[in-house]
């Protein structure tokens, strides 16, 4: 028996998107497979790794621990929506400049988390940066250059504001 589908509307990266999803469709899968936004990655599906972090009404959340139907009508920002057109955001540029990524799989989750962190706290201390990214796993970089990139992004944002 086919599962009941729910029609939902999301504003993703500023664009109104509709999808028909069963109640159990994870937001991560909805973004990736129903809407084709594969920049959001899935690393554990139990909320620990942080790869799937997206912004829900501006706040970072785990898209693998959120059902798509629950956030019907809300605004989502994914890694695809962070750049200003062709120009990467300060956070994205800082990650490139500081070699804050290697394989890139965890990177979208970090970028979303850090974007929200710096919006709330434009000049975080070392401790605040560590606490801010403490829920995101990276297996490649050892985090050192990610931490550096967060500080650098704060600098770029201050320079450009």
């Amino acid at each position: 028996m086919p599962e009941q589908a729910h029609e939902i509307t999301l504003v993703v990266n500023g664009t109104l998107r509709r999808a028909e999803v069963p109640g159990r469709r994870l937001l991560s899968d909805c973004l990736r497979h129903d809407l084709g936004l594969t920049g959001t990655h899935v690393g554990c599906e139990h909320g620990v790794c942080g790869c799937c972090t997206v912004l829900l009404d501006g706040e970072p959340v785990r898209s693998c621990l959120t059902f798509a139907v629950t956030v019907d009508g809300r605004e989502i920002t994914t890694v695809e929506g962070l750049a200003d057109g062709e120009r990467m955001s300060p956070v994205q540029r800082a990650f490139a400049e500081c070699h804050g990524l290697q394989c890139g799989f965890c990177t979208p989750g970090f970028l979303c988390t850090v974007t929200a962190l710096l919006r709330e706290n434009p000049a975080p201390t070392e401790e605040e940066v560590l606490e801010g990214i403490s829920g995101n796993l990276c297996r490649c970089t050892g985090y050192q250059n990610i931490v550096k990139a967060v500080h650098r992004a704060a600098e770029i944002m201050a320079e450009e504001s």
Binding site: G23, R62, C64, T66, T70
Partner: peptide
Amino acid sequence: VLAGGQSLIPLLNMRLAAPAHLVDIN
């Protein structure tokens, strides 16, 4: 009941819980 889901959804994803009905209070 589904509220924040941060404990429940991992259990569902691992199929360690399988409620017939999920009541989303969000």
